[in-house]
C-alpha cells in the first residue's frame, strides 16, 4: 500500500483538474450536437428547429426508406467505401514518405512542399482543373477514380505531417541493434519500426478517413454520375431540410461511439493475449 504523501496528493489534484477540463472540453465540442440528438426525435410535423412538436421515431424510420431527393443510403455506402480507400492509401503513402524523409535525398525539399501544396489548393479549383483535364483526355470522372485521386491529395499532407511528428526524434538505435543482430530490412520494419509507429499510422489513416468522408468541394465535378454523401446532403438542401438529417447525424455519432467501444474491447483482449 502506497502512502498518501503530499506529492501524491498534488499529482491527484493535477490529474483531477485536467480530467475536469477534458470533460468541459467534450461538452464544448459536442455542444451543437445536443440539439441534433434531441431534434432527431422530432414529431412527424416538426422541423429542424425548436419547438418540438411531439416525440416520434418517424425520422429514424425515414432513414431506412428510400429518400425523396437523391439516394442517401447509396451515397453513404459510396462515401464509406471511398473514405476507407483514402484511409488505406493515406496511411501507406504517409508512412512511406515519412520513412524516406528520415534520410537526406535529392529534391527532398521540392517533394516536401509539393505534398504541403495539397493542403493549400482551394478544393473547387482543384476539382475544376481535374475535370477539364479529364475531359480533354476523354476519361469519365467517377467517385472511385477521380474522386479518390483528389481526396488522397487532400488527406495525404495531414497523414504525412502526423507521421513526421511520429518519426521526429525517433530512436533509431533500436533498428540499429536489430540490424547488428543480422535482421534484414523487412524484418527490422516489421519487428521494430512498425510496432513503434503504429499509433501514428492509425492516426494518419483516421485523418484520411475523416477528411474524405466529409469532403464536398473537391468532389463537386469529380464524382461522376453518382453522388457521395456530402453531395447528396447538399442537394437535399435545395428542398425542405427534414429531421432525417439529424437522425442520420445522431446515428453516425452513435455508430462512431460504438466503434470506439468495440475497438477498446478488441484492444483489451489482444493486449491480454500478447502478455
Amino acid at each position: 500500500m502506497a502512502r498518501w504523501t503530499p506529492e501524491r496528493w498534488r499529482k491527484l489534484r493535477v490529474k483531477t483538474g485536467f480530467s475536469i477540463y477534458y470533460v468541459i472540453f467534450l461538452l464544448f465540442i459536442y455542444g451543437p450536437m445536443f440539439a441534433m440528438f434531441v431534434l432527431s426525435f422530432q414529431g412527424r410535423r416538426g422541423g429542424t428547429s425548436f419547438p418540438m412538436r411531439g416525440f416520434s421515431l418517424y425520422w429514424w424510420n425515414k432513414l431506412l426508406e428510400p429518400s425523396t431527393v437523391g439516394d442517401m443510403q447509396g451515397a453513404m455506402g459510396r462515401s464509406i467505401i471511398l473514405a476507407l480507400m483514402v484511409m488505406v492509401i493515406t496511411a501507406l503513402f504517409s508512412t512511406m514518405l515519412a520513412m524516406a524523409f528520415r534520410k537526406a535525398f535529392l529534391f527532398s525539399n521540392v517533394l516536401f512542399y509539393t505534398i504541403l501544396t495539397g493542403l493549400m489548393v482551394p478544393g473547387v479549383l482543384l476539382s475544376l482543373g481535374m475535370a477539364i483535364l479529364l475531359r480533354q483526355l476523354g476519361l469519365p470522372p467517377a467517385w472511385y477514380s477521380s474522386g479518390l485521386a483528389v481526396h488522397v491529395i487532400w488527406a495525404l499532407p495531414f497523414g504525412y505531417l502526423v507521421m513526421m511528428a511520429v518519426f521526429n526524434r525517433f530512436d533509431a538505435r533500436l533498428e540499429e541493434a536489430a540490424r547488428d543482430m543480422g535482421a534484414d530490412e523487412w524484418t527490422v520494419f516489421k519487428e521494430v519500426t512498425f510496432p513503434l509507429i503504429t499509433p501514428g499510422v492509425v492516426a494518419a489513416g483516421l485523418f484520411g478517413f475523416t477528411l474524405s468522408y466529409d469532403e464536398f468541394a473537391r468532389t463537386t465535378l469529380l464524382s461522376g454520375a453518382e453522388n457521395t454523401l456530402p453531395l447528396d446532403i447538399n442537394a437535399s438542401m435545395t428542398q425542405r431540410i427534414r429531421p432525417t438529417l439529424f437522425a442520420l447525424g445522431t446515428a453516425s455519432t452513435i455508430f462512431s461511439l460504438l466503434m470506439i467501444s468495440v475497438f477498446l474491447g478488441i484492444y483489451t483482449i489482444l493486449f491480454r493475449r500478447s502478455r
Partner: peptide, 21 residues
C-alpha cells in the same frame, strides 16, 4: 432515368463544364 440531384453551384458547374456527363 438516372437522376442526379445537385446543389445550385454544382449544377451550374457540371452543366457548363461536363456536358458529356
Amino acid at each position: 432515368i438516372r437522376g442526379q440531384a445537385l446543389g445550385y453551384g454544382a449544377l451550374f458547374g457540371k452543366t457548363l463544364n461536363q456536358n458529356d456527363q
